[in-house]
């Protein structure tokens, strides 16, 4: 992933205009023992990778590697929704205030609208679509259905993902733990009481190994 690929507009130190081809690197300067790594970096800039313009990257979403063309400024949410047609994560505010775009990244709940797509490379991304296999819902999803933890349903994917992360971390949450864990998910219809019931029910079932 971190390999340079100029056709992809991913390159090492492309910002160093006129520094030539990339043959010159900190390693080449320093392995010869000519100057210190720090001094070399002062000339060459830090090690790393540059992406500019429209670029094809690979994202690992719901267990599958997906190639997607993005710009550096493309958010993960936009990459998922607008490019990969993975529309479970919703855009409620596009500013990290509502939690409707919550996804799991390496198992942790994060906001896709406040993550750059290029910054999500190499991570395991799970959207709400990845929580159920084919038609079989997770115990938590089933509990949302049975307890009516949704009304218009627009915030629901975010809530389901946030609650999934919560239960993973804390299989036996108190009501206050649930409220804290879901405090970043705005539901304008006001389904919270039923959501709390759903999470408690699912926790019970999952603790029994359901």
């Amino acid at each position: 992933m971190s390999k340079s690929n100029s056709s992809n507009k991913i390159s090492r130190r492309s910002f160093l205009k006129g520094m030539g081809s990339g043959i010159l690197s900190t390693a080449t300067l320093t392995t010869g023992g000519l100057i210190s790594k720090e001094a070399a970096a002062r000339i060459l800039g830090p090690e790393g990778e540059t992406i500019s313009g429209r670029t094809v990257i690979t994202l690992k979403v719901n267990g599958k590697a997906r190639r997607v063309a993005v710009e550096p400024r493309t958010t993960l949410l936009s990459a998922l929704r607008d490019r990969l047609d993975i529309t479970g994560p919703k855009e409620g505010c596009d500013r990290g205030h509502c939690g409707a775009c919550t996804v799991l990244m390496d198992g942790k709940a994060v906001l896709a609208c406040m993550t750059l797509a290029v910054d999500a490379r190499g991570k395991d991304i799970t959207t709400v679509e990845g929580l159920s296999q084919d038609d079989s819902l997770s115990p938590l999803q089933k509990a949302f259905v049975e307890k009516d933890g949704l009304m218009c349903g627009f915030c629901t994917p975010g809530l389901v993902v946030a609650a999934t992360a919560l239960l993973k971390e804390n299989p036996n949450p108190s009501l206050d733990d649930i409220k804290e864990g879901l405090a970043g998910n705005l539901c304008r219809c006001g389904t919270y009481p039923k959501v709390f019931e759903a999470v408690q029910t699912a926790a019970k079932i999952m603790r029994k190994g359901g």
């Binding site: 900190t26 720090e38 060459l44 800039g45 090690e47 790393g48 992406i51 550096p72 290029v118």
Partner: peptide
């Protein structure tokens, strides 16, 4: 539309 740089070392970062 900015350029994105993912640094892997501190050295050179101030110059950049």
């Amino acid at each position: 539309n900015f350029e994105y740089f993912e640094a892997t070392s501190l050295e050179g970062l101030p110059q950049l």
